[in-house]
Design a protein around this nucleic acid. Structure first.
Lengths: 173, 173
DNA sequence: CTTGTTTTGGAATGTTCGTTCCAATAAGTT
DNA sequence: AACTTATTGGAACGAACATTCCAAAACAAG
């Protein structure tokens, strides 16, 4: 709380008059992160006419972020919270789930569009592939905290996208 | 610390006579986790003659664990630590890196063996694929904390292994 | 049994930190 | 200016908790 007062310039009383306590404040942070950070970077994937390039572009943006920083990263607020929160803290848990569902839906729509009406992938396979993309992004964020070699992360993303494209082209499931 | 005393039955003084403090104790926990948890479950992948089935089997064991528990999981000590530790805590950071390197090497050897001397994949591609497997496992652990639907996790692992096999069979990179 | 050595249970200490409180100050209103 | 209403800076309080300490109990050796 002292850090917050110092960094934001808002007084302790000010914070406590707007939020009932740290917990509520944190929930508000997650909401704010969603619109201030996730929405801009994910908007292209969520665009009505987005194709597979929007996914490539999404990962490319993440990677530019990794490459821009020196040393180790601090990860993503959602991803970090995911492995820090007590699973019984339901409000937070639901916000994290909403985030993951949002990513899933975004990827899912793009993949379905790219697959087309008579593509090689069934609805269930599209679900799997969208989950695969979403969960892989989570792995990427985690590992970005441990390596300062952004090239590894970039190749990870390339491998991921290549395997998505292979599936869309109709390789064996 | 109170929890430790209660759960282990060791007295406070006992703990502090064996370890200088919480930090050293935690480092010892990571080491212990490595040999008590990671080694048994990863041994098959590290076996001299392990093939791709050992990787399948490795993920299958993880998934059996996910399926066996009800509700949300608590994740993996290494994976959780990865997103909880201050990156400037070097001792821990090095232990986490050693863990990831271990997984990478294990997967890498299996993939190289499976690829054979004249397989479709270059050394660099084998590196990529081993990193891909290792980082994907991390994503799996993370997401296992958020869903109680183990089927999603299982399909994730199946998708991962399918894409590894596709690559080994020589699909486009 | 006696003496010396470990180990224990838990009180005591010191620190960190979330939260509350309030006098002082600033801002707004008539 | 006079008065009311926020806002601030920071002291104060209380809870949580890591660490230390120690008298009592358990144990070991002779």
């Amino acid at each position: 709380m002292g850090d917050l007062v110092r960094e934001t310039g808002v007084s302790r009383g000010g914070i406590y008059s707007d939020f009932s306590g740290k917990q509520e404040l944190f929930h508000a942070c997650l909401d704010h992160y969603q619109e201030a950070v996730v929405t801009p970077v994910f908007a292209q994937v969520e665009a009505e006419d987005a194709g597979i390039d929007s996914i490539r572009c999404y990962f490319d943006n993440l990677l530019s972020g990794f490459e821009a920083m020196e040393g180790f990263g601090i990860g993503c607020l959602v991803g970090n919270t995911l492995t820090q929160i007590d699973p019984s803290e339901e409000v937070t848990q639901e916000k994290l789930q909403a985030h993951c569902t949002r990513l899933f839906n975004g990827f899912r729509k793009v993949l379905a569009r790219e697959n087309g009406p008579d593509g090689p992938l069934s609805a269930a396979e599209l679900d799997d592939l969208a989950h695969f993309t979403m969960i892989s992004a989570q792995g990427l964020w985690s590992y970005s905290r441990l390596t300062d070699d952004a090239a590894i992360l970039r190749r990870y993303a390339e491998t991921l996208i290549a395997s998505i494209e292979t599936r869309l082209r109709g390789a064996a499931s």
